[in-house]
């Protein structure tokens, strides 16, 4: 393997992404369940809180963001579990490829199978919440940055809770406080666009947060994987 130079640095990354995409294609339930969960949470709020247009518009961005956050957490639970159980995580760690890049591949695949569907379905829910057109666009933009950040952040938590008791509830406890800036800026920015207020600052923040997570989170995930896969 040593004769393969740096040109193959991303071959491991690509292999992990391809494998995870194939796995979720074979088991579409893993991908669809969080999506249905997102849809249902967003349906619950109008039913519980009242269906008037003002109420929907007021609560819409917040509800959608909470729904997206919870749906992402739901799907993050199983990010490393099957790899841990069938031993392929050992192979990832032992391989010559740099582990942070492989961890980045896991996050990328998670975003493609969970984040992208959320973003794509968000206009439908935005319409159900009677949002104006510009808000629908802003909602999608914030969700794109937000779900990328969540996939990266969540991978750290998911790696840290491998083999721990009650990993599901523990993961939410670890990730939710860290994800709060994303939630605040995501929902606030979408709310601001409703009244035609400037939204650039919020989007810049989410973009910066996303880049920050992109550059640091894979290293933390790799460290967590090495520690917890023992």
């Amino acid at each position: 393997m040593s004769d393969k130079g740096t040109s193959n640095l991303f071959s491991g990354f690509c292999a992990v992404v391809r494998r995870d995409l194939l796995l979720s294609w074979k088991r579409p339930g893993d991908m669809l369940n969080p999506l249905f969960f997102f849809l249902m949470v967003c349906t619950l709020f109008p039913l519980a809180g009242g269906p008037t247009a003002e109420q929907l518009q007021l609560s819409g961005p917040g509800v959608m963001w909470v729904g997206a956050l919870l749906a992402t957490l739901l799907s993050l639970n199983s990010l490393f579990v099957s790899d841990y159980e069938d031993g392929s995580l050992d192979q990832l760690i032992l391989s010559q490829q740099p582990l942070p890049l492989l961890a980045l591949g896991k996050s990328a695949a998670h975003w493609l199978t969970n984040g992208v569907p959320l973003v794509l379905i968000s206009p439908l829910i935005s319409v159900m919440f009677q949002m104006p057109v510009q808000t629908i666009t802003i909602m999608m933009v914030t969700l794109i940055f937000g779900t990328i950040s969540l996939s990266l952040l969540g991978a750290i938590g998911s790696a840290l809770t491998i083999g721990a008791h009650r990993a599901g509830s523990l993961l939410s406890l670890l990730i939710l406080p860290l994800a709060m800036p994303i939630l605040i800026f995501g929902a606030r920015t979408a709310s601001l666009s409703m009244t035609n207020d400037p939204t650039a600052a919020g989007i810049y923040f989410l973009g910066a947060y996303c880049m920050f997570a992109l550059s640091l989170a894979p290293f933390a995930t790799a460290a967590a994987l090495r520690i917890c896969n023992e």
Partner: peptide
């Protein structure tokens, strides 16, 4: 604290919670 409490092995708990 929850992460520490969930991992029974002290060394693993040290390292995992350290990353967190």
């Amino acid at each position: 604290m929850a992460l520490r409490a969930a991992i029974s092995d002290v060394k693993k708990a040290d390292n995992a919670s350290g990353v967190l």
